[in-house]
Design a protein around this nucleic acid. Structure first.
Lengths: 187, 187
DNA sequence: TTACGAAACTAACAACCGTTAGTTTAGATT
DNA sequence: AATCTAAACTAACGGTTGTTAGTTTCGTAA
């Protein structure tokens, strides 16, 4: 029986390095060195470099999928659903800032799980789109450029990992972000 | 005398590959194969893989810097300056969509030019911030969360390379984007 | 005390990396 | 026809890659 603890340490260390340089530029020797052991020792706990990446990305993607399902099923109005999505991104990003870098930048290096990842991603975007379009038809959201709204919000939320490390109060961040994304910057 | 044409072809080919897999995952043999030649032949035209990346990133970064300078010096009001910045990103991204991927994701692999790149990037963000803060003090921009406004707009604009390929009318895109970023999504 | 097992180690592998050296090809210039 | 040159080629280099095999270490259970 493997101790799950050590495996998690490896993944945690790898995640930090992947954020700095990207999956392809990080070697097994880099990961090992940063833990004070030799590269071969990593294989007592994991099966491959690829497995580390898959573990990082798929767990995050599934977390987003699950929570999006809950938001969709809720009876909130469209604007409040958007606020929930924003809070979801702030929460997950603050809990695993480094992992979000891999989710955003290294997903194309997934192998066996690439198609599965792409299906989760596609479904997530479809659900997000549906919330916006529902808001437009219910006159809760401005009737223009739903695709641009979707991509503007999604782009900002996906970039959160680049600057949440500096953030202190997570709820305050979610509220401020909701304010800007929903109301814009004009006075 | 080297023919600049062939060098540009190499950079153009490399840029496409860098967008798909990232700088580190693309090999000189990949670039050569995609041009129908051998890797060694690339060195008749370029000095190193690093030179290709530097060429892609620095030329884009300097273009942003120059145009930001013009916007800063103009006598537009704050909102119109923001609209000019949005147009600038749409224009550069539509002209070199693939290169923008490297600018966003591969800048950390710059070597000699890394510090120079970081200084341009820092200056650009400072100028952007100044425009927002000026707008707030002139009561043209909402008095709240200037940092979040900055990062929200910048995140969206930096992600443009992910979806402008599908876009047809560039001016229409800039206008719609301005609408969403400045006025938000609420009705 | 002995035996066990998790987790480290050393050594090595085949493949691939960026790059260099020297050579061949073929079209343009003299 | 002879010469030159840009741009391709083949071959190879020293180093690095992910990974495997077999061995050692050492705390815990029997």
């Amino acid at each position: 029986m493997k101790q799950e603890n050590r495996k998690d340490e490896i993944i945690h260390t790898a995640t930090k390095l992947f954020k700095k340089k990207g999956y392809s530029a990080v070697t097994m020797r880099d990961i090992a060195k940063s833990m004070g052991i030799k590269a071969a020792s990593l294989y007592n706990h994991i099966n491959s470099k690829q497995e580390i990446l898959t573990n990082i990305i798929i767990s995050l993607a599934e977390e987003f999928t699950d929570e999006m399902n809950n938001i969709l099923k809720s009876d909130l109005n469209s604007i409040d659903k958007l606020k929930e999505i924003i809070s979801l991104h702030v929460k997950i990003t603050s809990e695993n800032t480094n992992g979000m870098a891999s989710l955003n930048n290294d997903w194309m290096h997934l192998e066996e799980k690439l198609d599965y990842y792409l299906s989760l991603r596609h479904k997530y975007e479809e659900d997000f789109r549906e919330i916006i379009n529902e808001g437009i038809s219910k006159k809760e959201i401005s009737n223009s450029n739903s695709e641009i709204m979707l991509f503007s919000m999604l782009s900002t939320l996906r970039s959160l990992y680049l600057w949440t490390p500096n953030q202190k109060d997570i709820n305050e961040l979610a509220n401020s972000l909701s304010d800007v994304l929903i109301n814009g910057v004009k006075i």
